[in-house]
Design a protein around this nucleic acid. Structure first.
Lengths: 169, 169
DNA sequence: CGCCTTATCTTCGATATCTAAGTATTGGCA
DNA sequence: TGCCAATACTTAGATATCGAAGATAAGGCG
């Protein structure tokens, strides 16, 4: 177990560093968005709609990678704030298409630069090549973990909620 | 804004990839831990105590990088499960030192290999050099974001909660 | 046409986290 | 010694997320 323990230490660093990075990004972005009364969650849906307006709640959930109750809550709030409106298409009273209001569209010019800034701050000091490598490593990691989860799922293991622990590892 | 938008797209990838990686790790680890009725949160405190037994709640909070109410809840549950016990030192009725029970200590041999496995799965396909670079990039990122947050804090901006949005960006 | 399955959104209850406020203990200093 | 500030833990209330179950609507098929 001695070897195992020291190996753990080395490997653990990766998980820990990634978690800290993710949290740092969240905070950097939230910090900027909150100055315009927009939360992280709202921003994510706005960002999707800026590119692709008129999506249903389900489509938004898939693109945002969250469950539908989560989307539901976020959209209700956005609607209340007058940033989106929702309406049924003529031929379907089930689906609810979500459209940005003028106010919601206008926010783009304000918020996008903030996201750019946060990302630029984070990557400061990394060369273009390094950034590219960085992305490549992250993609490998994500693919590995997806495969792992798929295999577990195949074995009948229930996958735990994605809602994450955000503390330090 | 056209340039801004495309620039956003490129930069955003980094935040998004990091977030996905963090979530993947959470899930991979939770998946393994839950087979032993241990949650992610519990594991984090166990892990700290395996290395350094007898810490106070505050010290544990700092090491785990979460707030004290969070630690409080987690410790209460661990105590209830018989994995830790808490007691006041003789000279101080305020502080509560946390000690692993035998059962808590024994769990180490079971759980540590699982964490090693999750980390190994994640880094599969990366050479030793690449892993080193990866860590270096992450450290730069974390440092950059910490600096950013410190600067914001100096300007009197309230820092948003660290509890993160875990969805896709 | 009517029923059963599927699709879509909504509601409910649970969990983990946070901030802020509350309680109790300790320590320093007039 | 007595009081006030700092320390340590606890409680309360808010938020964001999830899974599961509920409610309606649509579509397909005997």
């Amino acid at each position: 177990m001695q070897d195992g323990a020291s190996e753990l230490h080395d490997d653990e660093r990766l998980a820990r560093l990634i978690r800290l990075s993710a949290r740092g990004f969240n905070r950097a972005l939230s910090l900027r968005l909150q100055q315009h009364d927009v939360t992280f969650g709202q921003w994510i849906f706005l960002r999707i709609l800026w590119v692709e307006d008129g999506l249903s709640q389900r489509e938004l959930s898939q693109r945002a990678n969250v469950t539908e109750p989560t989307t539901h809550t976020a959209l209700k709030k956005l609607e209340l704030q007058g940033l989106i409106r929702r309406e049924n298409p003529d031929d379907n009273r089930r689906r609810q298409h979500t459209y940005l209001t003028e106010q919601g569209k206008a926010l783009r010019a304000v918020l996008e630069p903030l996201a750019i800034e946060a990302n630029e701050v984070a990557a400061e000091g990394l060369s273009a090549t390094e950034r590219e490598d960085f992305r490549r490593y992250l993609l490998i990691l994500i693919r590995n973990l997806e495969r792992d989860e798929a295999e577990a799922s195949k074995k009948g293991l229930k996958v735990p909620p994605k809602r994450g622990w955000t503390g330090d590892v």
